[in-house]
Design a binder for these strands. Structure first.
Lengths: 255, 255
DNA sequence: TCTTGAACCTGAAGTTACTTGAGGTTTTAT
DNA sequence: ATAAAACCTCAAGTAACTTCAGGTTCAAGA
């Protein structure tokens, strides 16, 4: 692009990769106003317009809104502002990155589970996805309730371990659907709950279990987490399962 | 949230963290339609609404549009679709993550440069940001022109090295602004260009320089990269600098 | 029972960064 | 001279909400 060349909007669009409607739009909002042929109204883009467009694109790349960019380009105290807001944008970007990273991990986990388990019913799938999407909320909740070390321990667990626990959980839901309705003391039922709880124990480790047991959860605002769980069980199944667990605990204590 | 409880929109909003206008909106588009008191028109949210909302949020977390979610929730062949599109979303997320990561790196580089250099004028700042924002385009361009190894080599360079090169470049622009107008054969001028080119050489390494030299860039579509550079120099400065370089090269050949 | 303030309702318009479309004019090539 | 390509303006559409205006209903206290 040489200095005195003039370009029609079509040519300019070609060169910059910015669509014609977008250039119209930038003109309209006063972001990039090329000269106009007064008789025809056709836009005439020149070298300086190219430079300004590049500036605009640079600022967009940094995450500025078009509105801010318009102001920035018209102000003179420009580089001061620019310098100041760079770290602000950095911060925002880093937050966004974390969120995405989290989502990626979760989706990968779900994909692997679906692969390895074959059919997974949709209620269960939701339960898993939901659990993942609210992981950070759970963590924050634990941190608030002086279970900081538990939270830390948990977040250190490998993705591999999480998948293993997920799989045990899937197994549990399948068995619950099969065994639901049987008496809570049925050996098969008790066997099921034993398997699951043991897997949970081995995932959490002894001293974490102890910590959890020591915490009087009744006192805490359980209703708060109630709202952020999505169970794959029907309400009846859930009640039944609770009874099964209660029975199992009693037996354990007696041993 | 117990089974038969009923909640006003305000309470429901509290519990879920979703704003009232958003709930109105979800109702309006048919995404989440709670019961309504027929006489007053007030919405009544129940347990099932909570579950549906959690499903909606789960799918949003995975990146689905509200439109898709509405369809998904009404369809029966639901989990099939869900399974199929998981990896699609994964792919999209990974791309997004790369873009953000790139932006973060760039901003960090700019921030460090500003810190270490003190004042940096805005034209130069733009040039740097622009260079970073188009790094991937340059890379792609090089790949297209059989400079694949050069491109790879370049992208392996550490952020540290890049900053060093940036700093040399900043130094160059400062000197150009100071020395501009002097005859090209002025010792100070030649010293300046020597320093810069040597820094460039040491950054690129010998065999990369050779590769670049061997490539007849004239033949390539230079005008393509012309459009994606934003120089911190005025046109006159740029011309002067080109002459300086030409002179320097001639002298080198004679040695 | 009345009143008053909080909570709720609907419908319309605003937001961001564009894209799409309709209907008309100018330029360019034959 | 004519026809196609390129351009113009103005209006409306998009996603996922938020904000606003103006009116109704509910809950609690006097």
């Amino acid at each position: 692009m040489k200095k005195n060349n003039k370009y029609s909007i079509g040519e300019f669009s070609e060169k910059t990769g910015i669509s014609i409607p977008t250039l119209h739009y930038y003109d309209e909002i006063g972001l990039l106003r090329p000269e106009k042929n007064p008789s025809s109204g056709h836009r005439i883009y020149k070298y300086q317009d190219m430079i300004n467009l590049q500036k605009i694109l640079s600022l967009k790349f940094l995450g500025y809104s078009l509105d801010k960019i318009t102001n920035l380009l018209n102000e003179s105290s420009f580089s001061v502002d620019l310098n100041e807001s760079l770290s602000l944008h950095l911060h925002a970007l880093e937050k966004e990155e974390k969120r995405i990273e989290q989502s990626i991990k979760s989706i990968k986990r779900v994909i692997r589970l679906v692969e390895e388990e074959g059919e997974v019913d949709s209620t269960l799938l939701f339960s898993l996805i939901h659990g993942m999407s609210t992981e950070h909320i759970h963590e924050e909740w634990m941190n608030r309730h002086m279970l900081k070390d538990v939270a830390e321990e948990l977040s250190k667990k490998s993705e591999e371990d999480k998948i293993l626990l997920d799989q045990t959980f899937i197994q549990l839901t399948k068995e619950v659907k099969k065994l639901y309705g049987k008496p809570v003391e049925d050996p098969k039922v008790q066997e099921m709950i034993k398997t699951y709880l043991e897997a949970l124990f081995s995932f959490l480790g002894e001293n974490m279990m102890q910590k959890l047991a020591d915490t009087n959860i009744e006192e805490l605002d359980i209703h708060e987490i109630e709202n952020i769980t999505l169970s794959p069980f029907t309400e009846d199944e859930q009640n039944w399962l609770n009874q099964v667990m209660e029975y199992y605990m009693k037996q354990e204590v007696m041993d």
